[in-house]
């Protein structure tokens, strides 16, 4: 619990392939009396499609066509009836990103495209919120957490949105349980952050599902990082919409 007695607010951005297993693990964890009390605010604007079902394990055929927020909260309440789950019907967009991040104690980036990922990184750091980034495509997952001041942050590692079309994003596909690995790791990092456990930061997890190989590699702060680097290097000081122009990519979640 926070010092003001309210539960922690976890902003889960994306109720898709990674949001589902992350929320499932968080909901089960919330049943433990040793886990800090938290609520989930989930931001998404999608409806469940049949092609989601191979990876979005909280949804079934009966949910097809249903609002993802409604389907997700119903599934989570079955796991943890006392867990408060609220919805923000909409994507993470530049106009609302700072406000959404400011209302949260930790941001979980379970989005499906590079533009949203960088926006989540920037909004979290600019509002001083820790953020957990989780992504998966094809057989691979990548997960890392950044503290409220970065050092390191997502941009220390990935700098900027790749030029041109994202790597085959419309056609790449993804293995369902690889999203599950990303979501499970994201849930654990989120819980570490709620416990003020600094070991959440400074590493990137990578998973290769083809070989079932999970690695944790140290990440160093990059002094030239535009988001969290030295004062002279910091060029990102506000959320400017033009920075996040990029194609949406379902396949990345």
């Amino acid at each position: 619990m926070r010092s003001d007695g309210r539960p922690w607010q976890v902003l889960l951005v994306g109720a898709g392939g990674i949001g589902a297993p992350a929320a499932l693990a968080l909901a089960h964890a919330s049943l433990s009396p040793t886990v800090p009390r938290f609520e989930i605010v989930c931001a998404d604007d999608d409806v469940v499609e049949r092609s989601n079902l191979h990876r979005q394990i909280l949804f079934s055929e009966a949910d097809v066509g249903r609002d993802k927020l409604a389907a997700l909260s119903a599934a989570l309440l079955e796991i943890a009836p006392r867990l408060a789950v609220r919805g923000h019907r909409g994507r993470l967009l530049p106009a609302v990103a700072l406000e959404l991040a400011r209302g949260a104690d930790v941001v979980v980036d379970a989005t499906d495209n590079f533009a949203s990922r960088f926006l989540a990184a920037d909004a979290a750091l600019l509002t001083g919120r820790p953020v957990v980034h989780a992504a998966s495509v094809r057989w691979n997952a990548t997960v890392l957490a950044s503290s409220a001041v970065g050092r390191p942050c997502y941009r220390c590692l990935f700098e900027d949105i790749p030029d041109g079309p994202a790597p085959d994003c419309a056609t790449a596909g993804v293995i369902g349980p690889v999203c599950g690995v990303a979501g499970a790791l994201a849930a654990d990092l989120t819980l570490k952050i709620l416990r003020s456990d600094a070991s959440a930061f400074g590493h990137v997890f990578t998973y290769d599902g083809r070989r079932d190989r999970l690695r944790r590699v140290s990440v160093s702060p990059r002094p030239s990082c535009a988001l969290c680097g030295d004062a002279s290097a910091r060029s990102i000081v506000e959320v400017e919409a033009r920075r996040y122009a990029g194609p949406a990519c379902e396949a990345l979640a």
Binding site: A184, D188, L191, D212
Partner: peptide, 27 residues
């Protein structure tokens, strides 16, 4: 299949274990 220093929470470990098992089965 990971040390608790990497992944500590029992629910997160369970979700990780379940997902990895199916990734292995698919592969």
């Amino acid at each position: 299949g990971v040390p608790v220093e990497w992944v500590a929470d029992p629910s997160a470990r369970a979700a990780l274990a379940g997902a990895r098992a199916v990734a292995r089965a698919i592969a």
